[in-house]
Design a protein around this nucleic acid. Sequence first.
DNA 1: CTCTGTGAAGTTGTTCACAGCC
DNA 2: GGCTGTGAACAACTTCACAGAG
Lengths: 217, 217
Amino acid sequence: MGGLGVAIDKKNIPQETIIRLAYYLRTLNWLVQEKRRVVSSQIIASLSGINSYQLRKDLSYFGQLGKRGVGYEVNRLKEYLEEILGLQKSWFACIVGFGNLAKAISLYKGFYEQGVFIKAGFDIQSSKINKKIAGVQIYHIDDIERVVKKEKIILGIITVPEQFGQDACDRLIKAGVKGILNFSPRRLKVEKEGVILKDVDLTAQILYLTYCLKDKG
Amino acid sequence: MGGLGVAIDKKNIPQETIIRLAYYLRTLNWLVQEKRRVVSSQIIASLSGINSYQLRKDLSYFGQLGKRGVGYEVNRLKEYLEEILGLQKSWFACIVGFGNLAKAISLYKGFYEQGVFIKAGFDIQSSKINKKIAGVQIYHIDDIERVVKKEKIILGIITVPEQFGQDACDRLIKAGVKGILNFSPRRLKVEKEGVILKDVDLTAQILYLTYCLKDKG
DNA sequence: CTCTGTGAAGTTGTTCACAGCC
DNA sequence: GGCTGTGAACAACTTCACAGAG
């Protein structure tokens, strides 16, 4: 049971609020480093690139986390956010398709700083298998069920080429993974109840820029 | 002047619509490969992981692109979308901070297939400078103004560590870049009029998964 | 009858204004 | 006075229902 002691109805909380909580948390981590003890919604918001109404609204879904007239206690708010986001325990993840993007993710401190640990990588290329790359042990994809169980892996990250995305997804689900982050460009389908998928399309983001700029030179 | 022959008021078009157009375009590219000539909103939508109402609404912002009772002509719609997204000309981009993520992006065919070409990489590490990595010529960051001008670079991609993000952003703007895609974890600030910034936070995405799963295992 | 295009309805998310506590 | 918390107003986006073209 969480320390907030409040049952929160997730249904009414916008997805975007959760994404923003992650931004606020990063800002708070920085404020902790800066030895800031108390801070206003103004300051957190502007450091996070968001307005202060939005921040207060976002936090209000989870109870009264600040003090009126004063602000928020940096350490306490950080811990609250970590609790809300489920970061008080460790999360074990794996990456399917161990190319450059997988390497980048494995070495990216943002993940393990928040308690998300890459415990295994899977590939089909024999030159990679049974090696450690970027600190991650690589296995053949056919071993996925065994390794996911052994390493208690709950999260799967897909970084395979376009045509193998759905297969990677199906194998992850079959192996028992509960959350999937998909960087392969095609949108994937998840049939199984209780499994969450998030697609991240790197190309789509840059096409948004080309759209905005197309008439400007 | 665009072939659609219609002036479109960008103000009323949701950002999310543009991101989805990029998904539809990918689906259409696949349908072209499959030699499909005509296709219904149903099919494009389901292949893109979106419902058909949404797809038709999204397209309707840009005019009548289909035929009632029939569907959409695959090739024509693809060309329309490319035009809307500004992909009928080439876009030259650079990457600041040439680590694994930069390598992954450089080798990712999704970019150059859409006419976005990575023309230069910038770093401070002398072992990388004046080499080609992943097919991209690497320069010292101090050369950025010269190279951006010479190579007619309009887009900048930031993949530096957290603490250097804003500096990378400022230098890109000073060099004359008009669109910035930021993968470094802190939110960046752009003062200059006419420059577009899009932040992509890789960690935030996985924290969304931990949030959803925290009470389930 | 089929499938698109779109105003209207419905839903979701954001901003505001101010009450309430420090 | 300062700053949070939140219902209410507002804005944005999505879904629907059906008109209209093939």
